[in-house]
């Protein structure tokens, strides 16, 4: 492929993936309102469009036309920068995530992925670990006690749970032997005992790692039952109390984009990525992996919303004790067991 063609293909892919990601973010909000509504015996959004399907568009227009208030007591440079930091890092991490196999159109052959780097997993972890600055700085620069408490809680919580999250992934890395996300999916090909798919969740006790990842990921994305940074019963709205209009929407987008990234990672690392039955004509064979991948991500997001509608919020000391005294030792134990399994096989 010539360099010009490569750049054109890359730009198209980036634009397309950004568009899909932001649409997915908007419709995850819709899905959440709808599912939680039905769980609570309500309808959720119904007015705008069929099944309220145009609600995200209406919300977007509302956010754009609302007055953009800047309270007089804030530290302005960081107050403005914080939502940008949050949303930029949340969206950037999608760059290394593969969605499927290769796409062949005529002579052009390109993977369903913006770029494949051999440290893909570390890149995602690194970029998402920078996302905490958005939350922490918004809390501090708002110059309000609720925001500050929310920001402090968020930074402590995200740093604590990042350790358990990272350790839970080491088992998968040991089994796969690579940091490349595409390589990790390739390592999950095939079946064992004839019918069980070779996904990492079924191998070497990684089901424990999967649940550690699941729990830590909820904490990392500040979702119920770990949404202490924005606990509305105690902190008004936590770190984004002083934000309105599009700046608030940016925090919202960042949160849901992070959820989608976490769901993508879970599908890639534990659930076999885009593996599934492939059949039909050539174009269908190329697009079916994409469908299987989206199905997994959707299931993961649904569990997210399900948990949100079911569990109450933790207390802050419970959250910290759970992270450090239960999840971290469990992750280390899982690491040791996996190391023994890998050494024996």
């Amino acid at each position: 492929m010539s360099i010009t063609l490569f750049i054109i293909v890359s730009v198209i892919k980036i634009a397309l993936i950004l568009f899909v990601l932001l649409t997915a973010v908007a419709y995850t909000v819709w899905l959440e309102r709808k599912v939680v509504g039905h769980m609570q015996n309500r309808w959720g959004p119904t007015r705008v469009g069929p099944f309220g399907l145009l609600q995200p568009a209406a919300d977007g227009v509302k956010f754009l036309f609302k007055e953009d208030l800047t309270p007089p007591h804030v530290y302005k440079p960081l107050y403005i920068a914080a939502p940008m930091i949050a949303v930029v890092f949340a969206v950037t991490s999608i760059a290394v995530i593969p969605f499927g196999n290769w796409l062949n159109v005529g002579k052009i052959s390109t993977p369903f992925q913006i770029t494949d780097v051999n440290i893909g997993l570390l890149v995602v972890l690194g970029i998402t670990s920078l996302g905490v600055y958005g939350v922490a700085l918004s809390g501090w620069s708002s110059n309000s006690k609720y925001s500050l408490l929310g920001g402090l809680r968020a930074s402590a919580q995200m740093v604590s749970y990042e350790i358990a999250l990272g350790l839970s992934l080491v088992g998968v890395l040991m089994l796969a032997g690579t940091f490349s996300l595409r390589g990790i999916v390739d390592a999950q090909a095939g079946h064992f005992w004839g019918f069980i798919p070779n996904w990492f969740i079924f191998r070497g006790g990684q089901i424990v790692a999967f649940f550690i990842y699941l729990t830590a990921a909820y904490a990392e994305t500040n979702r119920i039952p770990f949404d202490l940074p924005e606990a509305e019963t105690e902190l008004v709205a936590g770190y984004h109390t002083e934000y309105s209009a599009m700046k608030f929407a940016m925090f919202f987008m960042a949160e849901y984009a992070n959820m989608i990234t976490v769901a993508c990672l879970a599908s890639l690392l534990f659930l076999g990525g885009w593996r599934g039955p492939i059949f039909g004509p050539d174009w269908l064979q190329q697009l079916l992996p994409l469908f299987w991948f989206v199905l997994r991500v959707f299931a993961f997001l649904f569990v997210y919303i399900w948990v949100r509608g079911t569990l109450p919020r933790f207390r802050y000391d419970q959250l910290m004790a759970f992270g450090w005294k239960f999840l971290l030792p469990l992750a280390i134990a899982n690491l040791v067991v996996t190391a023994v399994v890998v050494a024996l096989t």
Binding site: L122, L125, G126, I127, S129, L130, V132, Y133, A136, L137, W140, L152, S155, A156, M158, V159, E162, G166
Partner: peptide
């Protein structure tokens, strides 16, 4: 990035 920018500096800011 993960250790210095993502963890240690977050603690500084904290």
């Amino acid at each position: 990035v993960i250790v210095y920018a993502g963890a240690i500096m977050v603690l500084f800011v904290f």
